[in-house]
Design a protein around this nucleic acid. Structure first.
Lengths: 328, 328
DNA sequence: CTGAAAGCGCTTACAG
DNA sequence: CTGAAAGCGCTTACAG
């Protein structure tokens, strides 16, 4: 049987009341140093550990953050997972990991989050029905979309400045003499893909430079296949902007396999600057997402809202930077 | 304020006792279809959700599995994370994700797991003090080491049959005419690296084929640097067995960068068969870890132990298979 | 099958 | 600062 030492047991051994024991473990309660010491000693001896369930039942609060994630396979999100976990731990929170297979958070997952009365939630690469978001609001649970933005401006989101970034990429490619371009998008309904397309095309339209758009899906395989499609057409573009790095690797591999030299025959630019982008096999020119800053912004917001809920809604955009390597 | 509908409220609306409401939501309790229906309707109307904290407080059980992971950056573990999450969800369990930066699980993380009274824990790529393991045992919490094995045979573990696998790899390389070999190990104190070294060397020793061992760390960068060291020596080995795929990519990149042709000048074999191994940039010959089976074994054990704790201890080994691609 | 009641291990007014 | 007591929202014997 699971041994269970309670505050009462500790109280008896320490010769104080159960309430005093409780106060020693409850932040902000007032206890004298003397009883604190006595309690700690007794607790140590007995192996006492406050019961989080009893505590949560009373305080109606938890020390858990819900982290909703789909694309763990993309190193960008793996990195995010790592940093979020470390940071939340530092703040005293544990993470309830909710893997969602669908683009949209399922009701089942929402129930889980609500059941555990999570202190806050971060959604990294999924969308959510409007009504679902309202459920969190109704319960005063802060929620932030990380690297994603909902069209209904009703939630807090933290992204990189995708539009400016892709404008810069377009300008850079033009300055390199690109005269006919291709854009390979990510999943078409994601905010990141939409914005990267917008900034990129805006500049090209303005300069009256011709370009073609191919819709893909943010995966290596998607990039690979899309590149094959591009190859089937007669003209090879002078440059390709691929909406994320992992897809760009697929594009590069497909192109190379077909004898296309990079950057001589065509230039490639990715987006994210994941670790792999600097690998000798790729040395990909890309846009660095300021992941650390983005995560800090996310966690700061969450911690503030947990401390005192305001329901503040904003779209935060952090600037990244261009990283030139050997694919351009 | 967070709205809070309790069983009492539902009871009043449904015209039954609070206990009956409780029984409707407690698996195994006996309730008539009639009251069940009435309760469900009232609950629906009020938006009732049983409080998991109150439930856990009483039952002294939780529906949470602790998943301890370090190497999220390695696609092998990202894949595992994904599958574990899906599977546990299917079984009605949520996952408490515990990221550990150290090779060894820290006391702080153990406290978290114990505080939440997790139903079970899986440790994927970290080790643990013996005493820590005992703490879980004392609380009848089943624990399994996934893709890792402790030398003290006191825990349940699920691995691929590393020794047989690396024996096969050595034999294969010999059959391909390799006459002087190199082994690049993973982190030296991990069971997987130790076993892969053991199986590989055993065959070579037996055949009296010369080889050299270089210790590395299971990361891309480690593989890259180790390969550079290998290159500094005069003779290029005719084949290199790299203890995991991600490291093998680093080795390949370093070698290619220095004009070494693969497989003409030297052959490379990895281990894991992560998705990337089939990418055109690498097309790595490797050993496929039966990850799906390994995960199923892990989850099955955990679910059985949760249903009725036996404390069974065993080292499970699942066979993988050789995947020949273009690096040999 | 159902209800009244005790109790899980805490927090938190309320007095002192 | 401290203790006695109420109560958080459930589960679970115990009767009926």
């Amino acid at each position: 049987m699971r041994e269970t030492v309670t505050a009462k047991d500790v109280a008896k051994l320490a010769g104080v009341s159960q309430s005093s024991v409780s106060r020693v473990y409850f932040e902000g309660a007032s206890v004298s140093e003397k009883t604190k010491k006595r309690v700690k000693e007794a607790a140590e001896e007995l192996g006492y550990r406050p019961n989080v369930y009893a505590r949560s039942l009373i305080t109606n609060q938890s020390k858990i953050i819900g982290l909703v994630m789909k694309g763990v396979q993309n190193p960008f999100y793996a990195q995010a997972l790592k940093r979020f976990s470390s940071l939340f731990k530092k703040h005293g929170y544990s993470v309830l990991f909710v893997y969602t297979n669908n683009d949209e958070i399922q009701q089942e997952d929402v129930e889980t989050l609500l059941n555990y009365n999570v202190a806050g939630v971060v959604v990294t690469d999924a969308t959510m029905l409007f009504s679902v978001g309202e459920e969190f609001k109704k319960n005063n649970i802060p929620l932030v979309f990380f690297n994603r933005k909902l069209s209904t401006e009703n939630f807090y989101s933290v992204c990189c400045n995708n539009i400016d970034a892709s404008r810069s990429i377009a300008k850079y490619l033009l300055s390199k003499g690109a005269s006919e371009l291709v854009l390979i998008t990510g999943k078409v309904d994601t905010s990141t893909s939409i914005e990267r397309e917008k900034g990129f095309c805006e500049v090209l339209d303005h300069q009256k430079v011709p370009y073609r758009i191919y819709n893909s899906d943010y995966t290596y395989e998607g990039g690979y296949h899309t590149a094959m499609t591009v190859l089937k057409e007669k003209r090879l573009p002078s440059a390709i902007f691929v909406a994320n790095d992992i897809m760009a690797f697929g594009v590069i591999d497909a192109l190379r396999k077909n004898g296309v030299r990079i950057p001589e025959d065509t230039k490639i630019v990715g987006f994210d600057n994941i670790d792999m982008a600097s690998w000798p096999a790729y040395e990909l020119t890309t846009w660095e997402q300021p992941i650390e800053e983005m995560i800090n912004e996310t966690v700061d917001y969450l911690m503030n809202e947990i401390a005192s809920y305001t329901g503040l809604v904003r779209d935060i955009e952090v600037d990244g930077k261009f990283i030139e390597r050997k694919t351009t």
